[in-house]
Amino acid sequence: MSKKPQYVSIPNKAFAFETDYYLENDELLVYYHVCCCVSARNPLLTLINVDMLSELITFQDNNTARKKKRIRDAVVNLHEKGYFSLSTKEEKIKNSTLLNIHLFHDKTPLFELKVRSGSWNYKGYTQIYDEEFNRVSTPEEFKVLIYTKLRSFENLKEDKCKYAISFFEWASVLKVTHATAVKIINQCVENKIIIKHSGEYYLTTLGKVRQDTNKYELKTETEFEDSEHEVETQAPDDDIYVKEYHKSTEQSTHGWFYKKSNYRLTPNDMVVYFTTECNVLKKHAEKRIRAVSKSSKGKAAMDNLMNEARIMMDHTAKRIEYSFESGPPEEYVYVKRKRKRADDISDLLD
């Protein structure tokens, strides 16, 4: 008889960053482990203490006393935020104090009451299985895994991976700066916790290259191996990128600094080369083009990519010129404004 997969239901409002429901890293880890330790007789009751939780939870902190204090604080905060009901026989919680923690089922307000943060609503829950938790090594990776699963709608095949997550949204739900959010997401992609589907490039009315928002999804280790050739892995690591990567100011996603010999440049890469204002990228790209063009086959490939890139740019420019020849109609303005709110990330890339 096969063992039924175990999971924990994480309330989605844990990511409601503008509300008191938002869970910090310590609180999320403690909540997960408390749920994992429920009683066999009562799946909504956990009997545990700080000492036991300290053995279960891995923090990037070698100081045992400080670690246990963080756990105590997290337990109290979770009780005050309404994630569970806590009771003890002692007035002051010690590391050995028996904690009677009563969890809530998924039909209670914790899960069903909708809250709003920024432009997003949060309600319901996301099921996190043991196998998924075992893939992460940091609290940040755990949050990214949960939020990716939340936003990928993987239980609905027709909607799977249609939701795009901007770095503004990542920075909001992780409560970090934009630069830190980029670093965390790239690390999660490199560690095969999530898969990134890079957004398509397009030109603005000013002729600047912009990129649609990226989409993300979770996959099993087997699926990662099967789809590695389809997915562009991007991570700021010296084993993957050439040294110029760290000196570049270009924010658009491209493959010019990718070190792997089997990476093939795309027309989008050429568009970035033609339009970039970063001299580091421009010089490196020209060096690569010269090297590849030494052979007749390589030169033909580079010429073909350049022609495709020019066609893409020319087509976009003509479409924009045609659209505004006699002034944009009202309905066109509405669509473009709606698209900017939902997808455009130009403010983040400037």
Rank of each mutant, 00 (worst) to 15 (best):
3 K>Y: 10
3 K>F: 10
4 K>Y: 10
11 P>E: 00
14 A>Y: 01
15 F>A: 04
15 F>Y: 06
20 D>H: 10
21 Y>L: 06
21 Y>F: 12
24 E>F: 10
24 E>Q: 12
26 D>P: 13
28 L>C: 11
29 L>A: 03
30 V>P: 00
40 A>C: 05
42 N>K: 11
44 L>N: 00
47 L>R: 09
47 L>D: 06
47 L>C: 10
49 N>V: 05
53 L>Y: 03
54 S>H: 13
54 S>R: 03
56 L>M: 14
65 A>D: 12
66 R>V: 09
71 I>Y: 01
76 V>P: 01
80 E>I: 10
86 L>K: 04
87 S>F: 15
96 S>W: 09
97 T>H: 07
98 L>H: 08
99 L>E: 01
102 H>T: 12
104 F>P: 02
105 H>R: 15
107 K>G: 05
109 P>A: 08
120 W>E: 15
121 N>P: 08
121 N>G: 13
127 Q>S: 09
127 Q>H: 09
130 D>S: 13
131 E>T: 05
132 E>G: 00
132 E>C: 01
133 F>P: 00
134 N>T: 11
134 N>W: 04
135 R>C: 04
135 R>P: 00
138 T>A: 11
141 E>W: 02
143 K>L: 07
144 V>M: 02
146 I>L: 04
147 Y>N: 00
150 L>F: 08
152 S>D: 04
152 S>L: 03
153 F>H: 11
154 E>I: 05
157 K>L: 14
157 K>D: 12
162 K>R: 13
181 A>S: 08
183 K>I: 05
183 K>G: 04
184 I>T: 02
184 I>G: 00
189 V>T: 07
190 E>N: 14
193 I>H: 02
194 I>L: 07
197 H>D: 14
199 G>R: 04
200 E>F: 11
200 E>R: 14
202 Y>R: 14
204 T>E: 03
206 L>H: 10
208 K>W: 03
209 V>K: 03
213 T>R: 01
213 T>M: 06
215 K>D: 03
227 S>Q: 12
230 E>C: 07
231 V>H: 05
232 E>M: 08
235 A>E: 01
240 I>Y: 07
240 I>A: 02
241 Y>V: 09
242 V>F: 08
252 S>L: 15
253 T>S: 13
253 T>A: 15
254 H>N: 13
256 W>T: 02
258 Y>D: 02
259 K>F: 07
260 K>C: 07
260 K>F: 11
261 S>P: 04
263 Y>S: 00
270 M>E: 06
273 Y>K: 05
280 V>D: 01
288 R>P: 01
291 A>V: 12
293 S>V: 09
293 S>I: 08
294 K>G: 08
297 K>C: 10
298 G>D: 07
303 D>S: 15
308 E>R: 11
309 A>T: 00
312 M>C: 13
314 D>F: 13
315 H>G: 06
320 I>P: 02
322 Y>K: 14
322 Y>P: 04
323 S>R: 11
324 F>A: 15
329 P>E: 12
329 P>D: 12
333 V>M: 14
333 V>G: 05
336 K>F: 07
337 R>K: 13
337 R>E: 14
339 R>I: 04
339 R>K: 13
340 K>A: 11
344 D>G: 01
347 D>V: 06
348 L>Y: 06
